[in-house]
């Protein structure tokens, strides 16, 4: 079976700095794949490279076995692959209403019946009609992230790239968004590639995950390996320990 997304020996360079070096990842159709790793290790860059937003210097990216030409993406690609950005505060145009934000992709791809589609997309992410004509600054972080998800889903993609969809949200809203994402994935049989720095979130959402550090993939694991402590790389170990919480190393003085 051909993989939905196959990245082979990918390299990305910014002014001589290697943000990604020899990265290979393969995601099967319908799978949910996690990317965890150090800050600055190139997780967002990997997603952006797939989306055609980062300069690829080596390697190949294929969708459903079809190799993408470097730097070139056609409209069909953008119907197939969509992305939700890391920062819900920065990913919505400050002067466009939610309605505009959802209408734009429909208009670009020439969808019919836009009215119904927008209403349906908003309902799907749990935002009522009252939100349709608001501006982003009138929404909370969680609501904005819902809009961003609705915008990504409205063109009916089959692969969704999620860049830390919940890192800016509080625990209760995070649970709502994660449930929403899982439900839509089930309903629409989507393929997810999800970046997160929270091992618990990734192990909850994903079937497999890759651990990244300094532009490399250090380990690829099934999610169940985390619960069973079956991992090798030293960095994975460190991550796992760190996700237990803060541990004070030296007590210089007793708390007053």
């Amino acid at each position: 079976m051909t993989a939905a997304l196959e990245v082979r020996k990918l390299g990305v360079e910014f002014n001589g700095h290697k943000a990604l070096d020899d990265v290979s990842v393969s995601v099967a159709r319908g799978e949910s794949f996690g990317l965890v790793g150090e800050s600055g290790s190139g997780k967002s860059t990997l997603l952006r490279a797939v989306a055609g937003l980062a300069p690829v210097s080596a390697g190949t990216i294929s969708i459903d076995g079809r190799e993408l030409r470097r730097g070139k993406r056609n409209r069909a690609f953008y119907r197939e692959v969509q992305m939700v950005f890391q920062d819900p505060y920065g990913s919505l145009h400050p002067r466009q209403t939610i309605d505009r934000a959802l209408l734009e992709p429909l208009a670009i791809h020439g969808f019919d019946n836009t009215e119904n589609r927008i209403v349906r997309a908003l309902e799907e992410v749990g935002l009522g009609k009252g939100f349709r004509f608001r501006y982003p600054h009138q929404l909370s972080g969680g609501q904005r992230q819902r809009v961003a998800i609705a915008r990504a889903l409205v063109v009916e993609p089959s692969i969704v790239l999620l860049d830390e969809p919940t890192s800016a949200l509080d625990a209760s809203v995070q649970a709502e968004i994660l449930n929403l994402l899982e439900q839509t994935r089930k309903d629409r049989k989507l393929t997810f590639v999800m970046v997160s720095h929270d091992l618990a979130v990734v192990s909850h959402m994903c079937e497999r995950l890759a651990i990244m550090q300094g532009g490399h993939v250090v380990e690829t694991l099934p999610a169940s390996a985390l619960a069973d402590h079956k991992f090798e790389a030293a960095y994975t170990k460190k991550l796992f320990e760190a996700s237990e919480g803060f541990q004070r190393k030296v007590h210089t003085e007793a708390p007053a």
């Binding site: 209760s172 995070q174 649970a175 994660l178 618990a200 909850h204 959402m205």
Partner: peptide, 20 residues
Amino acid sequence: QGLLNSLPRIGHDRHPLPVL
């Protein structure tokens, strides 16, 4: 309490997560 409860945990299979 609800907030604490809605956190995903490694090794706990709770789908969907409880929400507030």
